[in-house]
Design a binder for these strands. Structure first.
Lengths: 346, 346
DNA sequence: TTGAAAGCGCTAACAT
DNA sequence: ATGTTAGCGCTTTCAA
């Protein structure tokens, strides 16, 4: 007689029960060789180990979690895992988690609050060890609620002190300032800032830093050019048109991807970079050094951010844990898209 | 009186039990509003739903899996999720899985068989819905064993017909051929091929395609230059030295990253691309169009590969499922790193 | 040194 | 329309 369950799938993972039967011992002995081998007699242990190999035993994570053991899953919610910045970030997270035997669940929100909410819910249902998230900003209360329900949350690039959670951030005001000071030192006075379609704090702060640097140098405030919604290509074209109308001699972009797109759009219009217009990016993603002209940009230590976030997350398991906020310093990397302001009229 | 469990953590997720108590119904009624809402009286359903909100109910994925329901986790094992190719691939996988309410566990092996083995084991223990893997090639038997134990495995970029599993591949022989024919058409006769440190089939096949194209045109066979182990920088420098010694007028690289590095190394030595030497990449990762000179490369539809792999994986749940092998065609994208062979002596 | 038994949160078959 | 119950694979007391 063959029952329905066996029919449904010819393959079935064998569990401790099967190992126990194969080795002729009880389930708890199998549990002991797994979790407390010292207590098991050598001969028995060997017998059990052979049985494990023979039946192809694989421990069940879900069952262990159900018993209350810490999960080995960690969620990472970014705006887009294909974006080189977040790809690097996830790798940093993965590297640190790997040392702790944990795996990363990589999710993208595309900066859509609804998608973020869906993904967060899905993640929480897996009872992960925790969630590292670059928030869209629209679900901060939800994130706090998740933490309250027992799933640790680590924020990345969220406004400082926004929530009672662990967080790792970059001092974006300083980042914007660095870009500004670099350009001011090169003699630029009319500087534009290309921001994204959505108004997120980490970008606001860069603009604010730029504004401060310019104010301190007695220059006119930066002119914000917001990218049109839709694809990067269209948005950039329109931004560049606006840019040229403004007659700015330099432009700071919200990130490297946009900066490269802006450089291309300028070149297509016969505007030379940096001879006619200087361009500064943000992040220093790996390809920034490889485009031509090589991109001047504000670097943040991307993998370190990921590693730090993972560290904070793992530390949440410690009973005496207190929430902590880590801030990294950005750094200007001068390359070939910036140069001295051209003499007017030449 | 407060018991130990409560002490250990102030926060505790509430389960169906708590909802049932709060709503004054049995657990199965809660289960019904979750899984079979039509059968529940309207008033009761509302009461239960309110209770769920009130206690902050989150369904337990692990518990559901333990009951034998399909997991919502899918593993994706690539060589390096920070590599733009695999970052794109993972995004394609994520997009398709998202529609099925599944999440992707992104893992990197760095082409290290040991790491791959570790990661596969960790993944299998989570009893995921399946695993999509770009194998190092050293653990193929293990992959087959995993599938036998009940976790579906989908291969990516594995040798055709290597295993009795679903697979999605690209016709790399044709890919190599396309690169070769492009260069031959431009008059190149001495062509080198830069391969990676490790000898993996998808790269072998590209070289084989190149070889065939050259043979058919009566040209001398391609000269293989293997990258030195270690970091990309060192490896590329040495490869380029070898390259120049060979006096090849064109070089095909195993992928775009290496191609860009080769272009830079050539330029550092005063060799102009494409005036003196033509360079062809492979993959057409997003930045290939943005480096300067823009990279001529063999494109594969990266996100589509990911989506297809996810589709195959999800289809494994269907009882009548048969393993399937999908092959995508590559395509040459001629940009600015290739040009007509320079006249000897000029 | 080994075994018996309870229970984690859920689903599904069955009973009411 | 709602409730009772067994059990998924594991860990963890406790007893032998």
């Amino acid at each position: 007689m063959v029952d329905a369950a066996q029919h449904r799938s010819a393959v079935r993972r064998s569990g401790m029960r099967d190992v126990a039967r194969a080795a002729g011992v009880s389930i708890s002995t199998v549990a002991n060789v797994l979790n407390n081998p010292a207590v098991v007699a050598d001969a028995t242990r060997r017998r059990v180990e052979e049985a494990m190999a023979a039946v192809g035993f694989v421990r069940s994570g879900p069952a262990r979690q159900l018993r209350g053991l810490p999960s080995r899953l960690v969620g990472s919610v970014t705006l887009d895992q294909a974006n080189p910045f977040y790809a690097e970030l996830n790798r940093g997270i993965e590297d640190r988690l790997d040392e702790a035997g944990c795996l990363v669940l990589a999710c993208s929100t595309d900066l859509e609050p609804d998608k973020e909410r869906r993904v967060l819910r899905l993640l929480e249902e897996q009872s992960p060890r925790g969630i590292i998230v670059t928030p869209t900003g629209e679900n901060l209360d939800e994130l706090q609620a998740i933490a309250r329900r027992g799933t640790p949350v680590v924020l990345l690039d969220a406004p400082r002190g926004a929530l009672d959670l662990c967080a790792v951030t970059v001092d974006h005001v300083t980042g914007g300032r660095l870009a500004g000071e670099h350009l001011l030192a090169l003699g630029h006075l009319r500087i534009a800032f290309v921001s994204g379609t959505w108004d997120v704090p980490p970008v606001r702060e860069r603009l604010e830093g730029l504004r401060r640097a310019m104010a301190e140098h007695g220059a006119a405030p930066p002119i914000e050019v917001r990218m049109a919604p839709g694809d990067l290509f269209r948005g950039t074209e329109e931004a560049v048109v606006a840019l040229l109308a403004l007659e700015a001699s330099a432009v700071v972009c919200l990130n490297d991807i946009t900066a490269v797109a802006v450089v291309r759009a300028l070149e297509r219009r016969g505007v030379r970079v940096p001879a006619d217009v200087s361009v500064v990016g943000y992040d220093d993603v790996p390809f920034a050094a490889h485009v031509r002209p090589a991109l001047t940009t504000v670097r943040r230590p991307i993998r370190d951010l990921g590693r730090a976030a993972a560290d904070l997350l793992l530390a949440e398991l410690i009973p005496t844990h207190r929430h902590e906020e880590l801030t990294f310093a950005p750094e200007l990397v001068a390359r070939a898209t910036t140069s001295r302001r051209p003499m007017p009229g030449t």
